[in-house]
Design a protein around this nucleic acid. Structure first.
Lengths: 222, 222
DNA sequence: GGCGTTAGGTTAACAACGTTAAATTAACGT
DNA sequence: ACGTTAATTTAACGTTGTTAACCTAACGCC
């Protein structure tokens, strides 16, 4: 070994960790296009091919980066609701907002989850925290048991809520609907984050009414 | 010119069209990874660099493919609702289902809309049919005017519905939640399309209650 | 001490990619 | 015949992910 850069840092797993960290940083700063094996290697002070000792290939490296991101997002969401009473709709709502905030604060990472062309869809059980599904489901179940949400299959409700926040963020990352919303006056002077979260708050009434316990809607037009 | 392949087909715009068609076919069959300039050129019977006469570069080619896909999706959706009475919630619902069907029938194309790392989000006004936004807004406005949906800013409702179907499709394309749904018994023996549409139908009650006109919910817990 | 083995790298090379620039050819108008 | 234009090809470049051969230090064993 001739490279003193690595001599100082090398340990049994420290190189692997350094590679992952370099990959994450490159992704965060420059997106997927910036994430090349040569760029990662340069950051760590190795040759590009040294990475193949620790990872199967680029796809493996990216998968590992993604998995770590899933862990961080779950931790982020759990932290954002830990001070809110269990069983409340406020907790469910705060989770939705946390999902959006995490995505917007980690947009490059968030993008690649759904951008990467895997041969088959990921199995959710293999994903850390199930992509946020687990914590959302806990909150939904609690709200149902507390009588604050109508009782139905929790998984359907979880998918409904998840689809909603996920769709909102995804659309905003790909398209700029500000010109569409100009008439509503709700986007003036707001940056993307404020607008996205503001829209989510506008959705909350619809969601809350749609999910309120059945007793209240019995006299409805059904 | 030595290539008889092109001699037969060349016209002032026929080459351009052939290139676009080849790109679409490659994308549909093999996804974004299969879409290289050399592969497209081989399909048309040209050298890879001939494409640069017609397109600025690969990005331009893909943008054109995407724009065409947007047009097709709008036409698909308009066709799917043309026999359903205007102003009805059924029409809104059918639109959501059509969005999902189009996405699942054109998954590779659908994926690249949101996978492509554009420098900035697309301006919706620049997108043909505004990505489906326009036709959905028309239906929402009609439903509100007919008294079948509560009156509020149409654009908020449109974004709510769009986020929902878009999120559902996007999640399903990236993840496989079947193992999560095993307990609910709603996914047995169903393929992806049936499952996705089945879930969308399960969402409809929530959506309909959440969007019903205000008079009915006045006595609610608000 | 010599040898074989292993871990963690480097180097050399390859195929494929998107792209630029120069060269070529056919068609047209004067 | 000549100049111009459109539509291509060819040659070449830099970049990418990757494979395989090679290198070196460290270790354990005889």
């Amino acid at each position: 070994m001739t490279n003193s850069h690595v001599t100082e840092k090398a340990g049994s797993r420290e190189t692997e960790t350094a590679i992952l960290e370099a990959a994450r940083n490159l992704l965060a700063e420059g997106g997927l296009d910036a994430l090349s094996m040569r760029a990662v290697a340069a950051q760590v002070g190795l040759s590009a091919t040294a990475i193949y000792h620790w990872f199967e290939g680029k796809e493996d490296l990216v998968d590992r980066v993604v998995a770590h991101g899933f862990q961080r997002s779950e931790a982020y969401m759990r932290k954002s609701i830990e001070h809110i009473p269990a069983g409340s709709m406020e907790r469910v709502s705060a989770l939705g907002e946390a999902y959006i905030r995490f995505a917007l604060e980690n947009r490059e990472y968030f993008k690649i989850i759904f951008a990467i062309q895997t041969p088959a869809p990921r199995h959710m059980e293999d994903v850390p925290g199930q992509g946020g599904y687990r914590v959302l489901r806990e909150c939904v179940v609690e709200a149902m048991e507390a009588g604050n949400m109508r009782k139905t299959e929790p998984d359907i409700v979880v998918l409904y809520l998840w689809s909603l926040v996920h769709g909102l963020v995804t659309i905003f990352m790909a398209c700029d609907p500000q010109d569409l919303l100009a008439e509503t006056g709700c986007c003036e002077g707001l940056d993307e984050r404020e607008l996205t979260i503001g829209l989510f708050e506008r959705f909350r009434d619809v969601v809350r009414i749609g999910l309120q316990p059945v007793e209240v809607t019995k006299g409805g037009p059904r």
